[in-house]
Nucleic acid binder design. Sequence first.
DNA 1: ATGAAAGCGCTAACAA
DNA 2: TTGTTAGCGCTTTCAT
Lengths: 336, 336
Amino acid sequence: MATIRDVSKLAGCSVATVSRVINRKGYVHKNTEEAIKSAMKALNYSPDRIARSLAGKGSLTVGLVIPDILNPFFPQLARAIEDVASDNGYNVILCNTSNDPAKERKCLDVLISKRVDGILLASSTILPEQILELQRSAIPVVLIDHQFPEIPILSIVARNREGGAIAVRHLLEEGCRKIGHIRGPLHVAASLDRCLGYEDECGSEPWFIPSLIAQGDFHSEGGFRAMQELISRHPDIDGVFAGNDQMAIGALHALYKLGIEVPQQVKLIGFDGIASNRTVPQLSTVSQPIYTMGSQAMEYLLRLIAGETLPQQVHEFEVQLVIKETTKAEGRMAVQ
Amino acid sequence: MATIRDVSKLAGCSVATVSRVINRKGYVHKNTEEAIKSAMKALNYSPDRIARSLAGKGSLTVGLVIPDILNPFFPQLARAIEDVASDNGYNVILCNTSNDPAKERKCLDVLISKRVDGILLASSTILPEQILELQRSAIPVVLIDHQFPEIPILSIVARNREGGAIAVRHLLEEGCRKIGHIRGPLHVAASLDRCLGYEDECGSEPWFIPSLIAQGDFHSEGGFRAMQELISRHPDIDGVFAGNDQMAIGALHALYKLGIEVPQQVKLIGFDGIASNRTVPQLSTVSQPIYTMGSQAMEYLLRLIAGETLPQQVHEFEVQLVIKETTKAEGRMAVQ
DNA sequence: ATGAAAGCGCTAACAA
DNA sequence: TTGTTAGCGCTTTCAT
């Protein structure tokens, strides 16, 4: 690998001048610039980013910490982030924590010691203290899909509570008269908010009882089990709002196994908008603008890295009701 | 951030000694070691990985280049790779090329200039020359889901051709007498091999004609369109092998829209094993051991990085027929 | 068993 | 406009 010194020799100038043309900074004569450029070309030179980072420039790398890469929500987010990052010359180090706080902690330490220029934190098990510690080490952070009201930090989230309410309202409008909810993990903010949205809509209905809420885990397996529970507790249930699409898929599967027709006997709606074309019958859902959220998060992070001071507050994104087949009133459509 | 110098001062020794205990290398007295360790603790010291890399040690980072993070196959692969990597103290830089050769090329350049210790290449649009160039720069590479017979390089693939044949044979055994195939992108090796497997089994059947092969794109939308084409060209088709599960889901959806019953009128099978519970009826498929393939790839890469010389050849993984509902001869099972 | 010092490749004053 | 040089934080001979 050619170094900046090789280039300077070939171009007959000093390394400083070469550095100047690399960074387009400071004055440099047209002719020498040409000479340097062709020397770089001749040597197939490409600056060593490690050395550059060590010398004080950023690493042009950001860390992305996510809890579960198997949940399609996160690859979609990662896609957006990677797009914006690479458009701006940045790379993304991916850290999947598998919801393991120890791994998460280690992740953050490593990212810092790798001098990433910023961190995108989409992990749901993160603790407030860790955020504070990150902020102390002066590294820009943007939170995604999570928020800490008590800490001033830039966060990107969807209107989860409103989304939950929208989902349930849709079920009510489609004629459901006893609606269950499969909620996500207890400690996850998004899952709580969606559950609150559910309660907003039907907490005061005469038929409502707390046992209509079953505990899931944001995975399809949890959705499967929760659906079975729900049916055994309330065989007369006719609508279910699952806290995310993965669980909705599990629930759909459980209903099918139980011989219950969707949407004829039970209508089902999820949350996220990741499964639209991935299931048959197609899943109704409340979708988040995942790509927009991801790219916005990365753009904020870039601005923080550039030294801007942004308001450290929550940026909420609108959600959208997507009506597909699992909530259609008329049931499975007529053939042709 | 504390540096090695700070630690050495506090511990009353030289930086060299500190370096020795960091790297567990060379002799160092029990007492000084203790002193150094407590100094590190007191200063909350963590060695700067950038400096470490510059000084000649590896970067403890590998690059993962994938074509399409939205296809669940790749997150599953990434999951395995990230697990093995982080178990070994490595980080993964994720590069999504979106099947864009220019981006792919840039990716590789950047990875090299970031001094990654190795690269996992799962991109399907990669060209032989690029591999050769990588090898020239002496950076370890393992290919995934792709192979170049003409170049000596370690590759991880599933038995795609055999898998394709297994899928078709299963359809034949279930009584299909006219089987179509929805193939993946033209330039992708895996998609070609699966197609060849299809032809191995039914290329010589009396009913076979090339128009039974429709062109897809590995996405569900492509599967949807291809299935429509197939039906309009051959209304009497009674079995379909889709080149991956994504397309199979699209195909199932198309069949459903056309009012064609699966599996009664048409049996359908996919490839990959990523869609287990996502469809009603559940999708039969030929599954690849994705997690194993990913972790094996990373393990090979680690060994290459460690300096081992491994046989530069193709490591093929067995695939497995997973019979679910879309190919059941008796059709949809009775309720309960 | 430990230390001094020379890099690794680049950037950024400071001079010239 | 260009060059000299001192770091950035760590590893690693080579002495001691």
